[in-house]
Design a protein around this nucleic acid. Structure first.
Lengths: 205, 205, 205, 205
DNA sequence: TATGAATGAGCTTTCATTCAT
DNA sequence: GATGAATGAAAGCTCATTCAT
């Protein structure tokens, strides 16, 4: 059981170091220095730098996916709208509470190698499917207007990612997650801004 | 003048190689092999791998920023809505026409090093300012509803990025830019989907 | 402690290789081949070629400076003349016993770079000060005739260097240090400025 | 004939650059920049960096060797002592007047490669022979006392080199060559082995 | 003759990983 | 399990030299 603790300790240090220096700039030497263990110890617990990193990401993926509950459309369950908003809220909270992992996901996990890119693509694909499913349910229940739900889900995802990226980037101080959540929801979920574009599809672009 | 051609040739090869293998996986050796020139030739024209890469990105930034025109609100100019839509269209076209550079921008230029991150952050900042300015103009003219224009601009940017990322990722075949543009505009610009979220701001999350 | 041994082993090989091929011609590859270690091992123990070289020189400087004892002019101490001669003898012995380092100092450590040149200049400055001090003491005691002790010390140093350089250069076989020492002393110390060394070596060499 | 001028111009620039930066640090690029010519032009006139350098040294050797006249012991010629002193004076003047070449000879021409080392050794050998010959003549005429003329000549050479090295090294300002020459001569020539130089100490050092 | 773009051998250095203790 | 010295493939880069124009 000692082993599991060691593993976690090293993983935490890797998380810290990588979120600060970036995946490529973070050397194994940095991680073990931070953890106060020897090189060999590191390799006893992980297959290598990529491995710790992958575990970090995997773990975060699990957290996030656990935060997203499938919309329950059976009798007596809460309003679909509310369930969707709750999902967004939970996810935002996880992202805010794990700013370093969020940073890693958005900024460091990109472009590691093909296989890793695929893994991340697959994660986002699953997220997109869930969003799309929710939107479809909303449409079925007449509370989401007709649209290409594929693209709509991309917009939801992209918006969350960009807002989080901004929140992370502005080092000064993170905006309160509640505030960000509210704004985001008002805009994305509540209806956007250009009030009078009557029949946008008509413009023949 | 020959020199400029050579430089361009190498830059084009770097563009190809990096968009295929990624920044870190692409070695200078790969670039010069692709270009069919000697090592020294590469270093005669560029300070190093990072330098070509930076030039690639810089050039792309210029293209993109040239594609975004400030909204003209003087008498007799086209409707603000139309100008905004034109901007989105032009940018989408540039992104689609330079799928490899777009891929590089979205997937490879992230996490190179701190200085580079800053450069990209600054680019996005400028873009965000332009979007925000347009939205403010729209509000002044009563065609964009009241909202936090900062976050709204993040949503516009994030949406475009995510849609493009998806378009790039689906290797099979890129969706027609027109189609993507239309959908995106309908949704982002025209108003979103959840029809009846009455007063989401009230929930005080 | 193993580490210190490795370090010494590599340093010794560097000493051998550099004294044979010269600083510039000696590649790190040559040193590690001689030492039978991997590239990484070399860089684990030294910052680079310059670093080993500097350590080599530093170490030699220490040996040499340890060989030069300040002239003791208190009651009951050996004659100043004798102490001066002893110093020259000790230094000559060290130089002869470390012919390779002497060669490195005289022939390879020159013109490496500005900083190194300064380091060597400083070493010689210290030596010159010691020589000058001895001469001054000799003058005070009336056994060294009046002269510009600054230039006199340059002459002593230059003579030793040139004689050693010659000894090293004649690859065939080094002259016996005793012989060289005796000649040198007779001429520099005995015939030069020390006025009353009546019949210094009996000239019989 | 234009060609000869070009050659000289480039050689002069090489002289300047090399004396400032050192042989290894001075790149061909530095030399041609200083000379304001193209790379190809440089290689049209010289076989390479080593070649200019060698020419520089060769030329200096010629100057120096021209400055040393064989001692004339025929009837009616000036006193041998005077001829010897004249030689030293002439050489010192050349060295002082060409401080940059002197610097190159003493500090940069050492340890270039084996062949070059040999060339320089041979130069010094010739100088040593001339010195030794003078000393022998002096001995024959009873004005130089008995000693090992080989080592005595090394001492003369080493002294001059060291004094010049010091003069060059003290960047502040070169001591007047006359002063240095006088000091040097008083000590080396006057006080050393020449037995009957009546009152060399008188010249007010 | 002058030019300067092109060459490429060869150098230093890094760092993820292995393995004997 | 822990250690850290050793490994060596692989990368970036320099610069003296060549050669087509």
């Amino acid at each position: 059981m000692k082993s599991a603790l060691r593993r976690r300790q090293i993983r935490d240090c890797a998380r810290k170091v990588i979120s600060q220096k970036g995946y490529h700039a973070a050397a194994v030497a940095d991680i073990i220095r931070e953890a106060g263990v020897a090189r060999g110890t590191f390799y006893r617990h992980f297959d290598g730098k990529r491995d710790v990193f992958e575990q970090l990401i995997d773990e975060f993926f699990v957290s996030l996916e656990l935060g997203i509950r499938r919309v329950d459309i059976s009798e007596g369950s809460p309003a679909v709208t509310e369930q969707m908003l709750d999902n967004v809220h939970r996810v935002l909270r996880i992202l805010f509470d794990n700013a370093d992992l969020t940073r890693i996901l958005l900024r460091e996990a990109v472009g590691i190698d093909e296989e890793f890119d695929r893994k991340i693509d697959e994660f986002y694909s699953r997220i997109l499917s869930l969003i799309q499913l929710s939107l479809r349910h909303g449409q079925e229940m007449g509370i989401v207007r007709e649209c290409d739900t594929k693209i709509a889900s991309l917009i939801v995802l992209g918006s969350v990612k960009q807002v989080m990226d901004f929140a992370i980037g502005s080092r000064k101080q993170l905006p309160a997650p509640q505030a960000v959540g509210r704004e985001l929801l008002n805009l994305v979920a509540g209806g956007l801004f250009i009030t009078d574009v009557a029949a946008p599809g008509g413009q023949g672009q």
